[in-house]
Every structure is written in structure tokens, then in C-alpha cells.
Design a protein around this nucleic acid. Structure first.
Lengths: 141, 141
DNA sequence: CCTAATGTCTCTAGCAACTATAGCTTCAAG
DNA sequence: CTTGAAGCTATAGTTGCTAGAGACATTAGG
């Protein structure tokens, strides 16, 4: 059995975060020692590792909650889990596309900086006038 | 003079967000009509467009606050503004690198899905065992 | 066995950057 | 003159944690 601190070490999830996950029902309420300290077994360790890994992959907690409840029913078809992963992939790709556009605009801004005064600063100028952008990152909204 | 609604239309920033920006001191307190409604002029419009554009580029509000105060002193050298933009570029590149790694792992997860049951689901399996990842996105921590 | 240093406990509040709700007043059109 | 949209203030909620206060538990050293 692991204390919360050991569990934190094993998984790389910070102690307050573990308690937070318990609080929002992502982790089940663990047993307690005589002195009222949380004690975790191997199952909890696996579960938290799962959560950690999914968070690293950018899954929102709600999606992780769904994935966990799926993994509790191993006989079910895997379509739902696949769907969640696909949705996450789409979200990641959208963020990537957006970030790539931002990168190129920032590169232009920085490259054109002549190191003069603010008055002539491309950075400020470009930010003040969207029309000077190469592309349409702002969209219409 | 524009009402807050018109200003929102012009800039694409939502009405509550404009009030929020005022509240946190990012926009100056505007004049009011006889009936106590906010009225904005061209200067405010420009300022909010600047904020909007910078937000679109992912600058945090604190950085925008700095950029705005810089742009109020056009005689100053532009080094500071350039630095803020460079920092933002570095941050964007870091996020890009991370997202690219996630994209490839998610692609692998989804591609390997055999559409069987949860028991054999790669998505769940990979999430449960970090060792199955191609790379090291989780880091040590 | 005692003490000191951690570790853990609960609870509350804070972060970014908004978004939503409630309950009111004001404005513009018909 | 009435009605509906738009505006006002103030508070609370969102996501995913993080930080603090003040009290109890455990462990290592003397």
C-alpha cells in the first residue's frame, strides 16, 4: 500500500492534484490508515497512471472520465473509445494549424523589427492593424 | 461614438469581455451617456482591436498590458516590444513541438484500433501503459 | 522516550480569461 | 405608449489545478 506521497512520486502527479481528482470523482475514495491517511493499492496506481498519461495527451478530464468508465467494461465494443481518441486528434490538429499560422506571423513581426523606436516598431504596428497580417487567423468572429 | 454593442461588433470582442477588460484595467474607463451607457471613440476602438489581435496571437493579457503601455510611449526604443514578441514566439514554438508529438501518438493509437472490444482496444491500452508510447512526452516528472 | 522534521489532513481561496445568470434600467421602433 | 432589445451592476461558475493556513501523523535521530 502506498501513501499519497509515494503515489505522487510513482505517477508524477502532485499530491494536491491527486486529492483534487478524488474530490471530482475521477479517482475512487481510497481506504485510510489508522491515522486517517489515504492508502492506495496497485489498482489505484494503474488508474492514476492512466489519467496522467491521458492528461499528457491533452484529453480533457471529462473525456478521461468517459475513457475510464469504458475501460471498466471490457466486453463493450471499442468504438466509443476510438471516437474519443479521434475527437482528440481532430482537436490537436486544429490547434496545430492555428499555432503554425501564429508562428509564421510572429516570425514576420520579429524579423521586420528594425530596432528603432516604438513609433516605427513593426510589432506594435502589426498588432494595431490586422490588415497587415498575411492571413486570416482572426477569422470573422 | 459607439455603444458597447457596436464596439463589440466592430472588433469581434464580446460585450461582457469588453466590460471585463475595463474591470481589469486593460481598457480605460470610457465616458457615459446621459442614461449611463458606455460610449467609445476611435481611440478606444483602435486599442481594443490591438488587444483582440494580440489575444488572437496568443499573447497573455499581461504581455498585452505591457505592449499597450509601450505603445503609449512612441519615443522609446522598440527593444522591449521586440522582446515580448520573441518570448511569445518561443512559447508558440514550444507548444507546437509538444502538439506535434501528441498528434503522432494519437495517430498511432487511432490507426491501430481494430474495432474489437474494449479488452483489446489499443486506445485504452496505450493510455494505461506509458511504456508503449513511442516517445517521452510525459517526461520524468 | 522525546523532539524535530517531514508528511498528511481539511478547508478555503486564488490563478487565467473569460462566460453566464439575475434583476434592473434605458433606448429605439412601431 | 408600449414592447423588445440592449445596456447596467453584481455575483457566481467554468477548467484544471495550485497555494496557503492550521492541526494531526509518522519517522529518524539523539
Amino acid at each position: 500500500m502506498l501513501t499519497i506521497g509515494k503515489l505522487a512520486q510513482e505517477t508524477g502527479v502532485k499530491v494536491p492534484t491527486i486529492r483534487y481528482y478524488e474530490q471530482i470523482g475521477l479517482l475512487p475514495v481510497p481506504g485510510r490508515s489508522v491515522g486517517n491517511q489515504r492508502l492506495y493499492g496497485a489498482e489505484q496506481l494503474d488508474r492514476l497512471r492512466f489519467v496522467r498519461h491521458a492528461r499528457d495527451l491533452g484529453f480533457p478530464l471529462e473525456a478521461i472520465r468517459d475513457l475510464l468508465s469504458l475501460s471498466d467494461r471490457p466486453e463493450q465494443p471499442c468504438v466509443a473509445a476510438d471516437g474519443i481518441a479521434r475527437a482528440q486528434l481532430i482537436a490537436v490538429r486544429a490547434r496545430l494549424a492555428r499555432l503554425r499560422a501564429l508562428e509564421s506571423e510572429l516570425e514576420r513581426m520579429v524579423a521586420q523589427c528594425a530596432h528603432g523606436t516604438i513609433r516605427d516598431c513593426r510589432v506594435i504596428e502589426v498588432l494595431g492593424d490586422h490588415a497587415q497580417c498575411g492571413h486570416d487567423h482572426a477569422g470573422a468572429a
